[in-house]
Design a binder for these strands. Structure first.
Length: 482
RNA sequence: GGCGCCAUGGUGCAACGGUUAGCACGGCAGUCUUUCAAGCUGCAGAUCCGGGUUCGAUUCCCGGUGGCGCUACCA
């Protein structure tokens, strides 16, 4: 296996959003597919905007996504000497020069130019300083700029976008080292990708236009550049860049909302990539097996929340039951609904409950909200359900009968329960649905729940009888007073 | 403004010169039914516009339009 080395290099200036998560996923899939190495690097050289707790948040998000890294995390803030050494090398070889222009002045000139509708580019004022002059001003504050070649262009072959070329005329002498001696992005990535022997740079297409700058750096250093694969951006529903406005910012919000990491990965993988045919549901194993940069699209994609939900519901429904039990357990624990016995003697009961519920669940949080009554006696009757199923005038008379009938059952099984319920209805001359629907509300608090007889069987005779009694007792207060 | 990239139904993807332009999500309708899902069946819905090249363009080329990105001593 070729020793492919890729990296995910977020900067801790914000949470890990879906765009970053997708970039991380593609890098990870590529590494796992190729038997390569996936490296995590934190680009925290912007001391003003980087926050340590955000690094933690990013790591937490990656862990939730189960994108495990083989090396790192490396921190750029701990590797500053490397960048300075490289900068020094560039300066000595004449590829970089000190710039004494005050940032505020540059900013003013840029804005003035923009105002007049003129394209602004650093005019290379300090580029022409003689070595003697530069040396004489050495103790004045200065940045280090890269000396972009005068004519021609720089091109590279992107693994996704194909050949991309930018004329040197369009590239200004960009800063490598700021006047506080911290590296800028371009110097940092190149230095690190070099030192970490990165073979494939897989990152967002927002870096496409700037890649020639980095190629130029590799050339100046006389080192081979890695291969580049830019991936299209993920947009919000309004086709603009994803931001806080579009709801969940951090991918951990999706965890909190009740999504399964595997479903999330599956959905994310299909944003900007396809296996080449119409296959959609692909467990991670298959994602790894089929992933290829050649199938990455060049078109920005819109994040479709309802499709994500569809994936999640599908995984909840179709994964082997054993695999989703831990997630449901976690959800119940988080809501304080977990009973210790379900981890032991009651494991089987818990599994049956989850299995009964999962066909109509979309999110893990549905287990603790919608299906709450399956795990605790503390639940309310849903208002819409009350109006829809508890208003029939004969319920006050029939429910006690039903409760008696069920309480007297010798064998508590689906079929016996069904026989009993239908028997009461028949003798009373009403449709079984009347009792079934009312009972469902009484037992689950919901108008929508799993089939009733299975539900009763699962909940057990004692619980069913006492919940029916509770319903009977509260019925007068639930009747619409007209 | 300049430069770069992109352009298939509302959304995500297929079709890499020849198909009645396919699949999925979502929508609508039917079916099933014990509520609601699921399942099954069906319906509506797309090649941005204009020129070329070609026997033939969704596909290749050019122009336009639109979107996005870059244009910082941010990354």
């Amino acid at each position: 296996m070729a020793d492919f080395r890729v990296r995910f290099a977020p900067s801790p200036t914000g949470y890990l959003h879906v765009g970053g998560a997708r970039t991380a996923l593609f890098n990870w899939l590529f590494a796992r597919r190729q038997g390569g190495t996936f490296i995590l690097r934190i680009e925290d050289t912007d001391v003003d905007r980087s926050r340590p707790e955000l690094t933690e948040a990013v790591l937490e998000a990656l862990k939730w996504l189960e994108l495990d890294w083989d090396e790192g995390p490396y921190f750029q803030s701990q590797r500053l000497e490397s960048y300075r050494a490289l900068a020094q090398q560039l300066r000595q070889s004449g590829h970089a020069y000190p710039c004494f222009c005050p940032p505020e002045e540059l900013e003013q000139r840029r804005q003035a130019a923009e105002k007049r509708g003129k394209p602004w580019k650093y005019d290379g004022r300090c580029r022409r300083l003689s070595p003697q002059e530069a040396a004489a001003r050495q103790d004045q504050p200065h940045a280090l700029r890269f000396r972009v070649p005068e004519g021609g262009q720089t091109a590279f072959e992107d693994l996704v976008y194909g050949r991309v070329a930018v004329a040197h005329e369009e590239i200004e002498d960009f800063v490598l080292l700021r006047s506080d001696a911290l590296p800028t992005y371009h110097l940092g990535v190149v230095a690190d990708d070099l030192e970490m022997r990165i073979t494939h740079v897989i990152r967002g297409a927002d870096h496409l236009s700037n890649t020639p700058k980095q190629i130029l750096l590799y050339q100046a250093l006389e080192r081979p550049a890695p291969l580049f694969a830019h991936v299209p951006l993920i947009l919000g529903p309004d086709r603009t860049r994803l931001s806080k406005r579009h709801g969940a910012t951090s991918v951990t919000a999706y965890r909190d909302d009740g999504f399964l990491p595997e479903a999330f990965r599956n959905f994310l993988a299909l944003l900007g990539w396809s296996p080449g045919d119409d296959t959609e549901r692909m467990p991670t194993r298959e994602l790894i097996r089929r992933f290829s940069l050649q199938q990455v699209s060049r078109t920005n994609a819109v994040f479709d929340h309802s499709k994500l939900e569809w994936f999640n519901a599908g995984y909840l429904r179709h994964q082997p039951l054993e695999e989703i039990l831990p997630y449901v357990e976690q959800e119940l624990r988080r809501r304080g609904l977990w009973q210790a016995e379900w981890g032991g003697a009651g494991r089987d009961w818990f599994a049956r409950a989850v299995d009964l519920l999962r066909p109509r669940v979309h999110l893990l949080t549905d287990f603790s909200r919608w299906a709450r009554a399956f795990f605790t006696d503390q639940f309310d009757y849903d208002q819409a359900a009350i109006q829809k199923f508890l208003q029939h005038e004969r319920l006050a008379e029939l429910l006690p009968t039903l409760r008696e009938e069920l309480a007297g059952l010798k064998e508590w099984s689906h079929d016996e329960i069904e026989k009993a319920v239908r028997g009461v209805a028949e003798r009373a001359g009403v449709k079984a649905a009347l009792l079934i629907n009312a009972s469902r509300v009484g037992l689950t608090g919901q108008g929508v729940a799993p089939p009733l007889f299975e539900t009763m069987e699962l909940l057990g005779q004692a619980t069913v009888v006492s919940r029916l009694q509770r319903l009977i007792d509260s019925l007068p207060g639930l009747i619409r007073s007209v």
